[in-house]
Design a binder for these strands. Structure first.
Length: 428
RNA sequence: GUGAGCGUAGCUCAGUUGGUUAGAGCACCAGGUUGUGGUCCUGGGGGUCGGGGGUUCGAAUCCCCUCGCUCACCCCA
């Protein structure tokens, strides 16, 4: 084996490609019925574009290169900067709200592991121009609509939701100053990887005393059902400061997706990026990486020199989603296109008529295949026809003397003689 | 990028304490039973044992490097 696919990339043979398309088709179908329009951009961009949002540190995670004109470029690792650039360019001309989706592939120079490769496809869904929990909820609904489309249920996946403003209020009430707020979010994000003592010490530096740390810790560990914010209110002992979450809660219930959602204040996501609601979708066992993640990012378009523009969206990668579908047995076995007919010939004379017949049937829109074998052994040819999963087999045998062929329904086994002139109609 | 485990045909794996031309099942290809679908029979292609170097009379088996896979860290845009 001289060459192999580069580290962290996949070859898509027909079966894998069929599954890949099954996913992309579902993404597209669900996007469209939820009112989103498809967009795309170049697969490489100026390296600087990615530094705007993520800083200089992002460069080591990118596949980047210099072109012959000394331009620093990078293969796209995400879609948001491209989207922000596109929106900023025509912000005043585009009708609002802007509801866009894309299904691009991305490359990131990371070490591959389960659920994370160096090249992957990601469904991006974004809504810009509407600063409302209604938009937040609709975006989450769209993600859930996809899960339903693929056969997943609320028993398989869970949408974990938090809200920056709400967590900020809670932290603030516990004594964290505005200057220390980002550090506090960062600590919240890393708490699972820290020893309890280490966590307590770090929290102390942020102005939280031991008792508050314990309470905060517990608050973040608990899960709160969508539609029941009373539990959270009681846990926190707060009467105010939960308005943002409450407004979102109302919309989620209005969309009828409360069963899929829960509040998890430990969800943090990108620090400098999200400004309001944030969410992740996880498989219930928690064994896989996040299936999807997103939230509200109201300052981003300005960062790309556009006008103020509220925005909310999410990304869903194909790798983890495929893992989940495989584990749950929801990836259909047969997603390859099924032939309408498979033509076999039982004599050399009959074989001579295959090209003309096939050409005729195909030009009428039918998916038609035939055998290239020279054998006239019917058992063998039938086996090939069966393997192709064709709906019907057209048998060219003695009936040709009457200008007719046998047409066999492969699913039922029934067969009948059909005049050649009626074949296209009979196979429809 | 750091650490750990793994790497024999397309797939799942055998391969005795290093010993002659490296095997099986499935898959693939060809043919047979002179008109009916995962049957049966016969034959065939395919591996420089991930790659390179070393130790040895001799290595798939031992050592080093490298590439890839898996897992954790990092990151998760």
């Amino acid at each position: 084996m001289k060459f192999q696919a580069p580290k962290g990339t996949r070859d898509f043979y027909p079966q894998e490609m069929a599954w890949h398309n099954y996913l992309l088709d579902a993404w597209r179908r669900v996007s469209v019925r939820n009112g989103f329009e498809q967009v795309d951009g170049p697969i490489f961009e100026s390296l600087d574009l990615y530094k705007v949002k993520s800083g200089e540190g992002i460069v080591s995670e990118l596949f980047h290169f210099t072109d012959r004109g000394e331009r620093e470029l990078a293969i796209r690792p995400e879609f948001t900067p491209t989207l922000a650039r596109m929106v900023a360019d025509r912000a005043h001309a585009l009708p609002k709200p802007i509801k866009w989706f894309a299904t691009p592939n991305f490359c990131r120079a990371e070490r591959p592991q389960r659920g994370r490769l160096r090249e992957f496809w990601q469904w991006n869904v974004d809504m810009l121009g509407v600063d409302s929990p209604l938009a937040d909820a609709e975006v989450i609904f769209t993600a859930i609509d996809l899960f339903r489309e693929l056969g997943l249920t609320a028993d398989h996946v869970r949408v974990k939701i938090s809200h920056r403003q709400t967590v900020r209020h809670i932290l603030s009430k516990m004594g964290v100053s505005d200057e220390k707020m980002l550090d506090a979010f960062d600590l919240l994000d890393r708490r699972d990887k820290m020893e309890p003592a280490e966590f307590t010490a770090a929290a102390g530096k942020l102005g939280l005393d031991d008792a508050r740390v314990a309470r905060f810790e517990q608050t973040c560990r608990l899960r709160y059902r969508c539609g029941d914010l009373m539990a959270l209110r009681n846990q926190l002992g707060m009467e105010e400061g939960l308005e943002d979450l409450e407004a979102l809660d109302e919309q989620l219930r209005a969309f009828g997706i409360a069963d899929w959602c829960e509040y998890d204040l430990g969800i943090v996501r990108g620090l400098a990026y999200y400004t309001g609601m944030v969410f992740e979708v996880h498989e219930v066992s928690g064994a896989e990486r996040a299936i999807a993640g997103g939230g509200r990012y109201d300052k981003l378009i300005e960062l790309f020199d556009g006008p103020p523009m509220p925005a909310v969206g999410f990304g869903m990668g194909d790798v983890v989603l495929t893992n989940v579908l495989m584990d749950t047995g929801l990836l259909p076995e047969n997603v390859m296109p099924r032939p309408d007919a498979y033509v076999i010939a039982l004599s050399d004379e009959a074989a001579g008529r295959i090209p003309g017949l096939v050409a005729l049937l195909r030009s009428s829109g039918l998916h038609v295949r035939f055998s290239y074998k020279t054998t006239r052994n019917m058992g063998k040819l039938m086996k090939d026809a069966s393997a192709s999963r064709a709906r019907r087999v057209v048998i060219l045998g003695d009936e040709l003397a009457r200008d007719a062929a046998m047409v066999k329904e492969m699913d039922s086994g029934e067969q009948r003689e059909v005049p050649l002139g009626d074949l296209a109609q009979a196979l429809r």
